[in-house]
């Protein structure tokens, strides 16, 4: 293939990709956006140095990002809290809460607050 045809082909493919990107952004710009919404799931419990480490995952199912997301867990009368810097929209972040009591029997997990970044 001669050089000019190759360069034009590269240009055409790139033009299609940039058009797709702009189209996607315009579509998202016109679409309604939902505020942050969270789903907190307990992933596993590990016993480390006599304490229970509960690994959790926070998924943000909304269309907006959330900062300083405070996750609180309660096992019986005991509470533990973690603050996540940032949870992107349709993304997730992980963390660990530490309890004296064993959370395997049942833990109340939830997001208590967040900031608009």
């Amino acid at each position: 293939m001669d050089a000019r045809r190759f360069e034009t082909a590269a240009g055409a493919v790139s033009a299609a990709m940039v058009a797709a990107l702009l189209g996607y952004l315009a579509w998202r710009g016109l679409a309604e956006t939902d505020p942050p919404a969270f789903a907190v799931t307990a992933e596993r419990v590990e016993r480390i140095q006599g304490r229970h480490h509960l690994a959790f995952r926070v998924a943000n199912t909304g269309d907006a990002a959330a900062a300083e997301v405070v996750v609180r867990g309660r096992v019986g009368g005991e509470t533990s809290e973690a603050t996540l810097d940032f949870v992107p929209p349709h993304g997730s972040r992980r963390g660990v809460l530490i309890f004296d009591a064993d959370p395997s029997a049942g833990v109340d997990l939830g997001v208590r607050s967040y900031l608009d970044p």
Binding site: D2, A3, R4, F6, E7, T8, A10, G11, A12, V13, S14, A15, M17, V18
Partner: peptide, 25 residues
């Protein structure tokens, strides 16, 4: 410049297609 030896200066539109867009990609 383009790869073809006979085009010392590309017109703006051709340069946009052949360099700017692939460069951005």
């Amino acid at each position: 410049r383009g790869g073809s030896a006979h085009s010392p200066e590309l017109p703006g539109r051709a340069a946009f297609l052949r360099f700017t867009l692939p460069g951005y990609a």
